[in-house]
């Protein structure tokens, strides 16, 4: 349990947002554990998940902040947007209200993150097509109008879950390559860790700031 994998070269911070009950935690769980949790308890504040992925031959550690959708935590969760490289904005295709609230989530995201933060819109519960309340087309149009990436996914079947997380990472990585995302900026949400093969336990210096000031 103690031998964590250190051979990644980047850490990307993700934040998952959206109304209560749209399946944010289930999406995360499906992505990290490849399992569907049927009775997912309400998230308190924020919970965390990590997974190491590979983009263009580079190992990247995704550090995912899964926020509570409950209104009473809104003030708390607003604190966590800062420094996110990617934001997964989730709605439930079977509940129109969750879709209608997207503009408010989007406003928060734009206000509280960087211009370079990649925002990915996920219409969850695509397995429940029979109860669909939001069409693919209108959601796609909303995404295009606001410059968001978009898929419909299912945390239950795992459909498109992997894609959403990976596409976001690719877009972030591209921004780094293009120089649109400044790694040195404090709030970029990306930490670069030069890989050190042969010395798997080289101390990651960036993680060492335990100073309160």
């Amino acid at each position: 349990m103690t031998s964590g994998p250190y051979n990644y070269s980047y850490i990307f911070k993700y934040i998952i947002i959206g109304d209560m009950g749209v399946g944010k935690s289930c999406l995360l769980h499906q992505f990290t554990d490849k399992k569907f949790m049927a009775d997912c308890p309400h998230t308190i504040g924020v919970e965390f998940g990590t997974r190491i992925i590979e983009v263009a031959g580079q190992k990247i550690k995704l550090q995912i902040w899964d926020t509570a959708g409950q209104e009473r935590f809104r003030a708390v969760t607003r604190s966590y947007y800062r420094g996110a490289a990617g934001a997964l904005m989730v709605y439930d295709i079977t509940r129109r209200s969750t879709y209608n609230h997207l503009s408010s989530w989007l406003t928060d995201t734009r206000n509280l993150t960087n211009p370079s933060t990649v925002i990915f819109l996920i219409g969850n519960k695509s397995d429940l097509d029979g109860q669909r309340d939001v069409t693919y087309e209108e959601a796609k149009q909303f995404a295009d109008e606001n410059g968001l990436m978009f898929v419909e996914a299912s945390a239950k079947t795992g459909q498109n879950v992997e894609e959403a997380f990976l596409e976001t990472a690719k877009k972030i990585y591209q921004s780094i390559q293009d120089g649109r995302l400044d790694l040195n900026a404090a709030e970029s949400g990306v930490q670069h860790k030069p890989a050190s093969p042969g010395r798997p336990l080289a101390a990651p210096p960036a993680a060492r700031d335990h100073c309160a000031c």
Partner: peptide, 8 residues
């Protein structure tokens, strides 16, 4: 290394 483990 404590910090690495703390990180884990």
């Amino acid at each position: 290394n404590y910090e690495n483990l703390f990180n884990d």
